[in-house]
Write a protein that binds this DNA or RNA. Structure first.
Length: 492
RNA sequence: GGGCCGCUAGCUCAAUUGGAAGAGCAGCUGACUCUUAAUCAGCCGGUUACAGGUUCGAGUCCUGUGCGGCUCACCA
């Protein structure tokens, strides 16, 4: 870039050349004996046991700080488990190691061996006898105290963010543990994990604009999945009782603090369950995960304390909208009348929107921001939910819920529609309603309908946005903070 | 895609009304045998995102472009 960066990089390259000139391989193989965390545990163990022997270990990690004091030096190294201080004494090191030490920079990866002890101030420290350079770093690290705060750089060079900002790294630890906990929870209830196609001939199971790609050998366009739903249902038809998939899905829509074009979704399907069973499972699962990963069932999010302990509030969608917007959608059976009522409330309403989308707008405008504590909204209009089964006593509503917390939708579930004739009609109706719009309309998935005709048992299905769940559990307001490499525009 | 805001040294940030582009960290040289944001002395480091414009003079004002953030739209 500028001559400045070149200068620092150049200095480091000169050091690299010097090191090579002494016959040292700056990128050798190496086996470490302990992590820094294990080493500290070992030291404590030795101290507790009164053993006279000082533990000798070899460790490896990235140099994070150096405090050179003439004949002695202190370096801090960090590995995946933590960090530890190193103590170098010129009278303990060989000539070669002393020379090498002079060419070690912050950022280098080194291996060290020696004995563990505590300094006068009580800091666990390794007194180094042997030093090995494991990887010379040619680029300067971000500032040690303030870390890296340039958001653009944090996302584009996430590795620097992870090196410089321990809080950022911790979020991804939590994310990993959340996903592990979900698997344990579901496996423990008899679910089996499956994998279904990401490349699909038609993108079904939701209505979103898909990414399109092309398979050369087949000379056929494929869509990246926008949901795994229709394939998981095929597996239910095939006789699996409980299945789930944790995977990436792709939606070619706008990017925001709550949306990334590719995100992680959990979908689960359980035969002979309905949406009430699924509701009970969701609140239990989230509370247990939080307890297991964070050791608590309350989280801080956006200035609120959110209590995840079951039971969560249950609120009929119609009542919720009535309460927060003053509109009772039951009194407006078609899009035109509902739109007119919304316009009375000074809302700017897209005349293209059908009744389902209008109701969705009422939810996101009036209801969702108010649902801070975990809440299930129940019983959605059928036109918003083409894959859900109608309520036994009301053909206009389906057995569906969405779960909200922190003003975010985190889950969506329903008693699955398993009537193939009805399902076909729903698809056709949806197709008709969307035909006027410029967006690509989902084609009727004949292959799925054929599968349904063989008979799908009554089933409860669930979708959970994993990224948003992790946002909730880690208190992050932007989805980019919980996705390691969020989508950004390429820099020219 | 619209609106608002941002972009200054490798990193974190200053720069008064438009009047000499600065500091800390990092780096380099030196001193220092228990430091831990080590300390001390000295030094190096800039096409102020990019391209134009206004002006005696632009980091600062104007126009455009790029990228980012927030937000609206979009997203059942």
């Amino acid at each position: 870039m500028t001559s400045r960066l070149d200068r620092i990089a150049q200095q480091r390259r000169q050091k690299l050349d010097r090191i090579r000139g002494r016959g040292i391989n700056p990128y050798p193989k190496y086996h470490r004996g302990h992590t820094t965390q294990q080493a500290i545990a070992l030291l404590k163990q030795q101290e507790a046991s009164d053993a006279a022997e000082t533990p000798v270990v070899n460790l490896a990690g990235r140099v994070m700080a150096s405090r050179l004091m003439g004949k002695i030096s202190f370096l801090d190294i960090r590995d995946g488990s933590g960090k530890i201080q190193l103590y170098f004494r010129s009278d303990l090191l060989g000539q070669d190691d002393l020379k090498l030490l002079k060419d070690i920079d912050i950022g280098d990866i080194i291996g060290v061996s020696g004995k563990l002890f505590r300094t006068k101030s009580g800091e666990p420290t390794l007194e180094v006898k042997d030093l090995t350079l494991l990887a010379k770093s040619l680029q300067p690290l971000p500032e040690k105290w303030h870390g890296l705060s340039d958001i653009d750089k944090r996302y584009r060079q996430r590795y620097l963010d992870l090196i410089a900002n321990t809080e950022a790294k911790e979020i991804f630890h939590v994310r990993s543990q959340v996903i592990t906990a979900i698997r344990q929870f579901l496996n423990g209830r008899g679910f089996i994990e499956v994998e279904t196609p990401v490349l699909q001939p038609s993108a079904g199971g939701a209505l979103a604009r898909p990414f399109i790609t092309h398979h050369h050998a087949l000379d056929q366009d494929f869509y990246l999945r926008i949901a795994p739903e229709l394939h998981l249902k095929r597996l239910i038809i095939g006789g699996f009782d409980k299945v789930y998939e944790l995977g990436r899905i792709f939606r070619n829509e706008g990017i925001s603090t709550k949306h990334n074009p590719e995100f992680t979704m959990l979908e689960s399907y359980e035969t002979y369950a309905d949406y009430n069973d699924v509701m009970a499972m969701v609140e239990k699962m989230v509370a247990e995960i939080s307890q297991q990963v964070l050791g608590k069932d309350e989280v801080e999010f956006g200035g609120n304390t959110i209590n995840l302990k079951p039971p969560w509030s249950r609120l009929e969608l119609r009542q919720a909208i009535k309460e927060y917007s003053g509109i009772d959608f039951d009194q407006y059976p078609d899009a035109d009348s509902l739109r007119a009522e919304m316009e009375k409330k000074n809302m700017e309403v897209d005349p293209q929107k059908d009744r389902g989308r209008l109701i969705d707008e009422l939810i996101s405008t009036f209801v969702e921001p108010n649902l801070i504590q975990p809440t299930f909204l129940l019983d959605y209009p059928v036109e918003m939910s083409p894959l859900a089964k109608s309520k036994p006593d009301n053909e206009r509503l389906v057995e569906r819920f969405e779960a909200f917390a922190g003003g975010m939708e985190i889950a969506n579930a329903f008693t699955e529609l398993n009537d193939p004739i009805e399902q076909r009609q729903r698809f056709l109706r949806q197709q008709k309603e969307r035909q006027t719009e410029d967006e690509t309309v989902e084609t009727v998935d004949e292959d799925f309908l054929l599968a349904l005709e063989y008979g799908m048992p009554p089933t409860g299905g669930l979708g959970v946005g994993i990224d948003r769940l992790v946002m909730l559990l880690t208190g992050q307001q932007s989805i980019r903070e919980v996705i390691l490499f969020p989508q950004l525009k390429e820099k020219p």
